[in-house]
Design a protein around this nucleic acid. Structure first.
Lengths: 117, 117
DNA sequence: ACTTTAAATGCAACAACGTTGCATTTAAAG
DNA sequence: CTTTAAATGCAACGTTGTTGCATTTAAAGT
């Protein structure tokens, strides 16, 4: 699929709207289904930004085969509003109050990205 | 407002739908406006869960007066699906790739909460 | 090459979430 | 008691996402 190529080629996470305008000839419902299939197949993962916008990014090498746990940090640039996967910045260990058991962590950092600074 | 009392009383973050059913006599648009005003006034802060559902929680003591930066971790229980503010679990220091400047961090931990374990 | 079957696409409709404009009610100030 | 402003409710609209159904496309079988 060309959608997968687009997601792999660009270094950022793309929203449904962005993909829709890229593939203007494709129906938006088809896009929804394609992305849903990709996500269930473990090829892409969904990122919900601080604005509530859901974006999609390809799963890279450090995405475990089975669990598809995203052990990396996501970055949201407040200038260009793009969302990146910082694949090499892993989730830190957190010490929670007693009684809370961790199964997953999602970290979204906001700031100025490499290209805008 | 009774909405503020409800948010302060319960120890968790409440979604718009939950608040709507609590105050069934209040119009949902009024609820939207009240929550928006509270947020702009710095009384509550918005939390967007991993499911994309936005919830609201009161800002406690450690919310800085000016910036309203939420320097604490949010917890989403995979059993009861509630969202809590872990006020005493602060955001860790993250070391990002060169060129990325941090202005804010949002951490959402998933697992089993104190009441469900 | 033709038929059959299944998968992929497009369309229509619907539901949830959120916002805006306008009229009405409520409450505060004069 | 009147005037003004704030708060509420209603209607309408836009966006996002899902589902059902018909149609097209492609693959498999004969």
């Amino acid at each position: 699929m060309k959608v997968l190529e687009e997601l792999t080629g660009t270094g950022q996470a793309l929203s449904h709207t962005e993909l829709e305008s890229t593939f203007s000839k494709v129906d938006r419902i088809t896009l929804y289904r394609v992305l849903k299939d990709f996500e269930e197949a473990g090829l892409v993962h969904k990122i919900i930004g601080p604005d509530g916008v859901t974006r999609f990014a390809v799963c890279r090498h450090n995405c475990p085969d089975e669990t598809h746990t995203e052990d990396h940090v996501h970055f949201n640039c407040t200038n260009c509003h793009k969302v990146f996967c910082l694949e090499h910045t892993h989730n830190p260990d957190l010490r929670l109050p007693t009684g809370f058991k961790i199964s997953g962590i999602q970290i979204l950092v906001q700031g100025i990205c490499k290209h805008c600074s």
